[in-house]
């Protein structure tokens, strides 16, 4: 693989932010102009003061030219975030159902649509987002303990949070699988072929084998 290791099997946060920009958001244009027919999105004709849905990247483009108002998402208010935070703290075993890209969205709105929030609201919201992230991060650490070679279940974890732990989880799981694969499955174990050479492998000479880990009599099974 030509990519450096830190870019393999994972996204950078910037890439996730980019992906989020294709989400549809509500805006209200200030001018009248024609729509666009694109391959991935159909942008409707813009009428002043009409509410319409456009991809986020288009909304940002208009917003930068001050050609529209962006409506902030329902959950991105002080009250709602406080409610989420309370719910998040109330249940130690589950994550609240925030949008799967809440971190990306909140950052984009704070950056490009800061004038759509009330004055002084943004620092409070940022604080709440950071707190939510913190509480969830602790749960992630706890949840990771249930990792094994098959799966790891963390419902409602957002894309950014998954991406943060993705490489750690895949590395550890990969090693789990490699170690498990060294064992011959039990059912095959029974049908050990008689013709396979079965050398016995001795243990070290000066062994006192009273307790604990078995030192002697490694049975040799090599059915490949």
């Amino acid at each position: 693989m030509a990519l450096p290791r830190h870019l393999q099997n994972t996204f950078t946060p910037q890439e996730l932010e980019f992906l989020t920009e294709s989400e549809l958001v509500r805006i209200s244009p200030r001018y009248k102009f024609n729509g666009l027919d694109l391959i991935t999105a159909k942008i409707p004709d813009m009428m002043p003061n009409r509410t319409m849905e456009v991809p986020l990247w288009y909304a940002i483009l208009l917003k930068k030219q001050n050609r529209c108002r962006m409506f902030t998402p329902d959950w991105l208010t002080e009250d709602n975030l406080k409610a989420y935070l309370k719910k998040e703290k109330g249940n130690a075993n589950a994550f609240t159902n925030l949008p799967f890209n809440w971190l990306e969205l909140s950052k984009i709105y704070f950056t490009y649509a800061s004038d759509e929030f009330r004055i002084d609201e943004i620092p409070k919201l940022k604080q709440l987002i950071a707190e939510l992230k913190e509480v969830r991060a602790i749960k992630v650490q706890t949840g990771l303990k249930s990792i094994d070679e098959h799966y790891l279940q963390l419902d409602n974890l957002s894309r950014m949070e998954i991406n943060e732990i993705r490489r750690f989880v895949t590395d550890v799981m990969g090693k789990y699988i490699q170690l498990k694969n060294t064992l011959v499955p039990e059912d095959e174990y029974e049908e050990d072929d008689e013709d396979v050479p079965m050398p016995t492998v001795g243990a070290a000479g000066e062994d006192d084998d009273e307790d604990g880990y078995e030192n002697e009599g490694y049975e040799y099974n090599y059915n490949q």
Binding site: V172, L179, T182, L183, V184, Y189, E214, N221, Y222
Partner: peptide, 24 residues
């Protein structure tokens, strides 16, 4: 991995898996 592959030592692998998780 190489040792366990040779001896099919389930106890050993289980012990190592517990260690892998805790240390991870």
């Amino acid at each position: 991995e190489k040792w366990a592959e040779l001896f099919n030592d389930k106890d050993l692998v289980d012990t190592i898996l517990v260690m892998l998780k805790e240390r991870a």
